[in-house]
Every structure is written in structure tokens, then in C-alpha cells.
Simulated assay, not measured.
Amino acid sequence: MAEPDRFLLADRIGAGGMGTVWRAWDREDRRWIAVKLLDRYDAGSLRRFVREQDLRVRHRHVVQPTGLVPGGFTMDLVRGGSVEQLLRRHGPLPDAFVRVVLEQTLEALVAVHARGVVHRDLKPGNLLLEPTGTGRPWVRVSDFGVAAVVGDERLTRVPGGVGTGGYMAPEQADGAPPDPRQDLYAAGVVARQLLTGSPDEAPVTGPLGPLLARLTDPDPACRPPSAADALATLRDLGVPRDAAWPEVTDVLERPRPPERLLPSYLALVAGCFAGAAAVGGLLGWLLVR
């Protein structure tokens, strides 16, 4: 685990169901990174937080944890905002852009599913963009807070599904065990939303229509059997290499100089965690694995 004073927290840049994401200055590597800190400390959220830190999928289109800090973990800082923010600014996105977003998301899912992991919460807000200007978009799948390992112990034991309404496959919403085809359903809903501006069920015309219909079929047996199969089908349709792309800019404001930031924040979090036996046990379990 890194020393608390190594990272200087600058500003909060995001929030999720369990934690907040901060921009931080890494004093050792002399670069800006992201730090995700846990907000709630009940046993269930702690175990999910530890699992998220442990689910490291090394892939160019995945945002993965890079190290532990007191009360959270570090990640790469992705500066182009989310696909959700781009959709809000731009409205429905061009077919060529959506094909590339879907292609890169499926590439990420191939790697994620190869680890036996199901993301369970794919949505535009969890697809981050590198700032590529008017160049080819670069997507990175983020936020594995409710991800699950197929066949592993389930950390949520309440009626219904885990995920975000509107993007969950019907069987996931009913509480079915994690299955990679649930992520394919969500990927199809996301692509449909990027084309139409709404995640609601609506037929999509054009070349992507048949693939999106398969991805979002209510019956998981009628969906593509794997992300690799869906990716092959998409590439057979043709994924553009050059197009007039919507501009993806750097959405983060210029940070304050590092010397004005507060290195004591993580030290304070460390003190809080030191007083919580449950946290100590869980982090100890993680570190000796």
C-alpha cells in the first residue's frame, strides 16, 4: 500500500454508488491520476470495494486499479469525460461513431469475460473517453463496483437484480446469476441509445439494426454466445477507420498547482480505517493474497 502522503487530492471528479473519484497528484511519479475512495463502510460495500480493487483486467479499453491507498485505490486519469456527457452535449451520435464505441466496448468485454468477470453495470456513464479531439474515439470501460465473478460467492442477497434500470437484461433484473450475455444486452442498449438518444426499446434501422436486435433480445439464448462472436459480427458489417468524428475534448479544468493541495486527506482516511477492524481485516486479506 502506498504512503498516504504520496498522493495529493485536488478535486472530486466523479461519484458512484459506493465511492467518489478524485483527481490526485502522484508525488513519486510526478503525474495526475485518479483515486477512488469508499464512502460507506458497511460489510457488504467493503467486500464489493475490495473485490473491485482485486478485479484487474489489463486491456487498453479497460480502466483498472493500479494500486492501493488507505480507503481506496488509484487508477489512470481519463480526461475526456463519459459517453453519457458526450451524448448530452451532442445529441444522437453518428452511426460511424457508435460502431467504434461498440467495437471497443466489445473488445473490453472479451478481456473482462476471459477473466470470468461480468461487469453488470455497462451504461454510457461508465464508458469513459480519452480526449482525442476530432480524431478516432478511444473508449475505456470503467467502474467495476458491482462486477461479479461467474460461479463465485454473490455479495448481494436482496430480491431483484444488481445494476442500473433500463440497461439490465430481463433475467438480470429478476435476480439471475451473473452471465456474460447480460453485459452484451447492456452493450446493445447503450449502442441503441447513442444512435437514437434514448435507451428505450425502439427498432434501429440501418446496418446495425439486426446486431442490436440480437444483443437486446429478451431471451439470453438468442443473443450472441459471446462478446467475441458479437465483435466478429460487427466487424463483418464494417467498422470505419476514418470519419468525421464528434469532438471529444479534455473536460477537466486546469488543476491547482500541486503545492497548494492537501496531502493530509488520505492520512486522515488512513486514521479512520485504522480504527475499523472490519476494514483492516479485509485489506489485510487482500494484501496477502
Results as ranks from 00 to 15, higher is better:
A111V: 03
L282R: 14
D143K: 01
R47P: 06
R23D: 00
L286N: 02
G145N: 02
T249H: 10
L266Y: 07
M168W: 12
G188P: 07
Y265C: 06
L194M: 06
V158Q: 14
V150M: 03
R51Q: 13
G166H: 12
L9R: 12
T20E: 15
V112A: 02
E253T: 12
G19I: 08
A24K: 10
D76C: 01
V239F: 07
G275S: 08
I33V: 15
A221C: 04
Y185E: 05
D217Y: 04
L194C: 04
P257I: 04
R181D: 01
Q193K: 09
G284P: 03
L77Y: 07
G14H: 13
L68K: 13
V63D: 04
G197D: 01
E3F: 08
R235N: 11
V279S: 12
A10C: 14
L8V: 15
G163D: 08
T132W: 03
F73W: 10
G71W: 05
P180Q: 13
R58M: 11
W285F: 08
P203V: 11
L86T: 01
T196G: 05
L195C: 05
L283M: 11
H119N: 07
A2I: 13
E130I: 00
F49Y: 09
L122E: 00
P4M: 12
C272D: 09
D5R: 15
T105F: 04
A230G: 02
A243D: 13
L261E: 04
T233M: 12
L215R: 07
D229Y: 10
P199V: 14
G175K: 13
P4G: 12
M18F: 14
A243M: 05
P203S: 11
Q182E: 10
R154G: 03
A213I: 07
G209Y: 13
A148L: 01
V35G: 04
G238K: 09
E171F: 11
Q182R: 12
G14C: 08
W32I: 06
V50E: 12
L194A: 03
L155N: 09
L184N: 07
G91R: 01
R27G: 06
D54N: 13
Q104P: 09
L55H: 08
V57Q: 08
P263D: 01
L282P: 06
L262Q: 11
P246Y: 03
L106E: 03
T156E: 11
Y265W: 14
G133F: 00
G19C: 05
Y167I: 11
D236G: 10
G125A: 06
R241K: 05
V141N: 00
P220E: 06
P177N: 10
E153R: 15
P246Q: 06
R260N: 07
D179T: 04
E103A: 10
V112S: 04
T164R: 14
P94V: 02
G166I: 10
A148T: 01
V62G: 04
V100N: 01
W25P: 02
G166Y: 13
D11S: 15
L287S: 05
D250Y: 13
R89N: 08
C272Q: 14
A43R: 15
V21H: 02
L212V: 09
G135Q: 02
E28K: 12
G91S: 06
Q53Y: 11
L155D: 10
W25I: 06
G80Q: 03
V269R: 12
D143M: 01
V139I: 12
V69C: 09
H59E: 04
K123A: 00
T205V: 10
G275N: 09
D143Y: 03
T156W: 13
Q193W: 01
Q64F: 06
